[in-house]
Design a protein around this nucleic acid. Structure first.
Lengths: 368, 368
DNA sequence: CTGAAAGCGCTAACAG
DNA sequence: CTGTTAGCGCTTTCAG
C-alpha cells in the first residue's frame, strides 16, 4: 500500500513557512514537481506493477519484459525515483561501500591515490568512506570498528599496518581487506605495493655507479614495510657494488623529523649522497640542505627520493626518484578487492609492481 | 525469535575448505570465538532481555536500568556485537554519513580540508563518503545523484558550484548542503568561505604600499566565486590606493595554465608584482619565473598567493600569501551542517572568516 | 515473466 | 523501565 498521507515536504518551495504549516492534501501524481523520498511502491503504483517488478528493473541481472521495463522506467523518471542504496544493502548484504583508511594525507602521494581509487571504484559501482587514522594500534582498532559498523563490502588500508588481531576482526566480519603500499609477512593479507626492494636496489646502483662514496640513508617510520623493504634493497644494492652505508638517520616519514635527520647527518663528516625513504621527506631534506646548510644539490650532495609525487617534478626540486606506479597499483588494488568481494575464494596474495627510476636533477652524474 | 541455523561462517578458521563444507551445528554461546554478523537478537537472548532493551543500551538518549545496561554490555562485549549502522539508518532516517564533493584534490588545500573535516565529523559521530568531481554541471549532477542514493544526512560541496536545479534536488530530498570555499549569490545556500574580498584587498594594499607600480593578476577559474571575490577585492584595493591593474591572465586554478599565464605576462612589458589567485598556481608561477624566465623573486618580481597551503611555507617557496583559516572554516562548516541536520530551521546563511596576510619572502619590501 | 509474502537488523511507539 | 508490535525500503524465494 502506498502511504496516502501528505509528507512534510509536499510543499511548493515558494510558500512561506507559515503557509506551509497549513498546507494539506496529497499532491502525488500532480505532475513534475517532486517530493521527499520516492519509494519503489510509488513507482510500482504509478507504473501499475508490483514492487518486485520495479526492483527487477533496477537490478542489473534480473529479468523483466520490455514492456515492464519501459513502464517502470518512465514512472521512475517522472517521479525522480532512485533506489535507496541502504535498503538494498540491508537485504542484499552488499553495501557497495568500501572503507579506506589512510594515515598520511599530507604526503601528496595519498591524495593522488585517494582520487584514483575513488574514481576506479566508482566505475565499478562502489563508493569510498574515508577514515583518517594515526598509525597507532589503538586508533586503527577504533577506526576499523567504525568502518565495520557501516557494513562495508571491503577495506583498503593505505599506509597503515593491521595487527593480526585487527585483521581477524575483518575476517570474522567477512570483510576483505587489501593493504595498499604496505605488506605484512605474517598475515594472509592481500597487499599491493611497488617493488620496494628492487627500487631501493636501483637507487644504490645508481648512486655508486655515479661515483658516490659516502652514501647515507634517511629512513621512514620503522614500522612500515615499505621502509624496511626499501632499506633492505638499498643495502643489498650497496653491498652488491662493493659499498656499505655511510650513515643512517630516521625521518619517520615526517617532514620535520626528516629535517632534523638531515641536520644530524651533516653534523660532522657529511655524506655525498642521501637516499631518502620517500619524496615527502626528500623535499624537506632538500630544503634543509639548501636553505639551512647552504649547500648545493647535487654538487655538494646528491638526493634520491621515492614515490614520484607531483612536487618531485616541480622545477624547484626536480628530484630524482623511484616512481610508484600509482595507476597500476590502484588498478591492482581494485581488481584484487572486487575479486575477493565477488568470489569467495581467491588465489593471489601479494602484488608487487615495479616502478622505474626517474632520473632528474638531484644526482651528480660523475663524482670524480 | 533467534535464528538457530548455523551460519556459514560458524567455522573455526583453522579448518580447511573441505572440512568446512562438512562442519555443522550451532556454535553460538561457545565462548570467545566470534562469527559473522552478530545481531541485537543474539545479544538480547544472551542477556535475557528484549531487542528493544539492547537497542536502548546502544542509543545515547534512551533509558535503561543500570542492571540492564550491564547485562547487555557484557553480552555485547562477549559476542563482539556492534549495531548495524545501515539498519539503524533505515528506521531512524539518519545515516550519519556526510557526502563530500571535491574537485581539486591535487591542490594541497583540499586534502588538508578533507582531513580536518573528516576528523571533526567523526567526533560528532558522522563519517565521510567522498566523491571526486570535475567542475562540470553534468558530472556534478551524476555525483550528486549517487550521493543522494546513499541517503546521506548532509553534503559538503567543496570547490564546486551547484546549479539551482541541482540544489533543488538536494532540497527536495531534504538533504542540507553547505558550500565550502565557494558561495553563490542567487541561491539560498549555506556557504563557508574566507573573506576573499578582504583578502584580495589586503594584497593590493600590501603591494602598492611596498612600492609596486606594475601589478598583475593571475585569475583562477572564472566560474568560481572565490576567484571573483578575490579579484574584486584586489581591484578595489588597487583603486583605493590610486592604481589599476597592469595586466591580467587566467590560470584556471591549474598549474600548467598558470605556467602559461605567467609566460604570457612576461612576453613584453613585465609586471613588478603578481597576485596569484591561489597558492597552488602561485607555486607553479614561481617555478616558471625562476626556472624558465631566469628571474629572481622578489628582486625582479614580487609574488603573493592565497590559501597558505603547506608548501607555501617550504623554504624553497617561502611564499607571502593570505591564509585561509582552515580550522575555523571547517569548524564553521561542521557546525552549520549539523545544525541544519539536527534542527529543521536555521537562520544563518553565509559565513565569511577573515584570514590574515602571511608575510614571507616573496614580496620586495621597498621597490624604490 | 510476474506478484505475494517474508524478511534484512534495527528503532519507535505503545502498553504494561 | 521494559517487552511487544510495527514497520524503514528494498530484494528475494516461491507460486502462479
Amino acid at each position: 500500500m502506498v502511504d496516502e498521507t501528505a509528507k512534510p515536504s509536499d510543499l511548493s518551495s515558494s510558500e512561506t513557512e507559515e503557509q506551509a504549516e497549513v498546507a494539506l492534501g496529497n499532491s502525488l501524481y500532480k505532475g513534475e514537481t517532486q517530493h521527499n523520498k520516492v519509494t519503489s511502491a510509488d513507482v510500482a503504483l504509478k507504473a501499475g506493477v508490483s514492487r518486485s517488478a520495479v526492483s527487477r528493473v533496477f537490478t542489473p541481472g534480473a529479468s523483466a519484459s520490455a514492456k515492464t521495463v519501459e513502464k517502470v522506467k518512465k514512472a521512475a523518471q517522472e517521479l525522480g525515483y532512485r533506489p535507496n542504496v541502504l535498503a538494498r544493502a540491508m537485504v542484499s548484504g552488499k553495501s557497495r561501500i568500501i572503507g579506506l583508511v589512510v594515515a598520511y594525507l599530507n604526503n601528496q602521494f595519498y591524495p593522488t591515490i585517494l582520487e584514483k581509487l575513488s574514481k576506479a571504484l566508482r566505475e565499478r559501482g562502489y563508493h569510498v568512506l574515508v577514515f583518517l587514522s594515526s598509525n597507532t594500534e589503538g586508533d586503527i582498532a577504533e577506526v576499523l570498528d567504525e568502518i565495520l559498523d557501516y557494513q562495508v563490502d571491503g577495506i583498503v588500508a593505505a599506509s597503515v599496518a593491521l595487527s593480526s588481531d585487527l585483521s581477524k576482526r575483518c575476517v570474522d566480519a567477512g570483510v576483505p581487506v587489501v593493504l595498499f603500499n604496505r605488506s605484512q609477512d605474517d598475515q594472509e593479507h592481500f597487499a599491493v605495493t611497488s617493488d620496494n626492494v628492487q627500487g631501493g636496489y636501483d637507487v644504490a646502483k645508481l648512486l655508486v655507479e655515479t661515483g658516490h662514496k659516502k652514501i647515507a640513508y634517511i629512513a621512514g617510520w620503522e614500522g612500515a614495510s615499505t621502509q624496511r623493504d626499501r632499506e633492505q634493497g638499498f643495502l643489498e644494492g650497496l653491498a652488491a657494488h662493493g659499498q656499505s652505508l655511510f650513515k643512517r638517520e630516521v625521518g619517520n616519514f615526517i617532514s620535520e623529523d626528516a629535517r632534523e635527520a638531515t641536520l644530524r647527518l651533516f653534523e660532522r663528516a657529511p655524506p655525498d649522497a642521501i637516499f631518502v625513504a620517500n619524496d615527502h621527506m626528500a623535499l624537506s631534506v632538500m630544503d634543509t640542505i639548501r636553505h639551512e646548510l647552504g649547500l648545493t644539490i647535487p654538487q655538494d650532495v646528491s638526493i634520491v627520493g621515492y614515490d614520484d609525487v607531483d612536487a618531485a617534478a616541480w622545477p624547484s626540486y626536480n628530484l630524482t626518484t623511484v616512481r610508484q606506479p600509482a595507476n597500476r597499483m590502484v588498478a591492482a588494488t581494485v581488481d584484487l578487492l572486487l575479486e575477493k568481494i565477488e568470489q569467495v575464494d581467491t588465489q593471489p596474495r601479494r602484488i608487487k609492481i615495479e616502478g622505474p627510476l626517474i632520473l632528474r636533477g638531484t644526482v651528480k652524474s660523475n663524482c670524480d
